[in-house]
């Protein structure tokens, strides 16, 4: 059932018409709002490519009903550049030349920033990072995280 919801995405509150309040946030971001930085990977919350921040906490948006995001602050990879922790993580990723194909990296970065916002640093961030990278950038991901 089509509904209109108010979403706060990357600091902008906007009215969004969605076909169903149970539509995953991932596809609302990608197909309706055009924010394609957040990626579809597995659709079952395993790979983490779809990670976004909901009120500062990393969540997998492929199985997060858009209706549940109403009233919360959603930050996507596109919004990380305006976030202090996001900027630090991005700078570390560039300094360590982390990405290869780059497809999983928005999720990696968002999950990392979520851990930073939970007060974690270095090894404690890495130990909780379960995102999949088929390119195998893990060694550089780990190195980048050690500086955070």
């Amino acid at each position: 059932m089509a509904v209109t919801l108010s979403l706060n995405v990357n600091g902008v509150v906007q009215s969004v018409s969605v076909p169903d309040s149970g539509m995953p946030l991932l596809w609302v971001l990608r197909d309706i709002l055009g924010l394609t930085g957040t990626k579809y990977g597995c659709g079952i919350e395993i790979c983490g490519a779809c990670s976004v921040l909901i009120d500062g906490q990393a969540e997998k948006s492929c199985d997060f009903d858009v209706g549940s995001a109403v009233g919360k602050k959603i930050i996507t990879i596109e919004g990380l550049s305006a976030d202090t922790d996001g900027q630090k993580a991005q700078a570390a990723w560039i300094a360590n030349q982390v990405p290869q194909c780059g497809y999983c990296q928005p999720g990696m970065l968002v999950a990392t920033v979520g851990a930073m916002k939970a007060g974690q640093h270095g090894a404690s961030i890495a130990s909780g990072l379960s995102n999949i990278c088929v390119c195998g950038t893990y060694q550089r991901v780990n190195k980048a995280i050690q500086s955070l």
Binding site: D31, L80, G102
Partner: peptide, 27 residues
Amino acid sequence: MARTDIPAKVNGSAVFGIDVKVPGMVF
């Protein structure tokens, strides 16, 4: 040399096939 594609791959602006947008597009 620093990779030319990395800046776009850390801020969500890199366009993969799955990210292409064309006016009037359906899915």
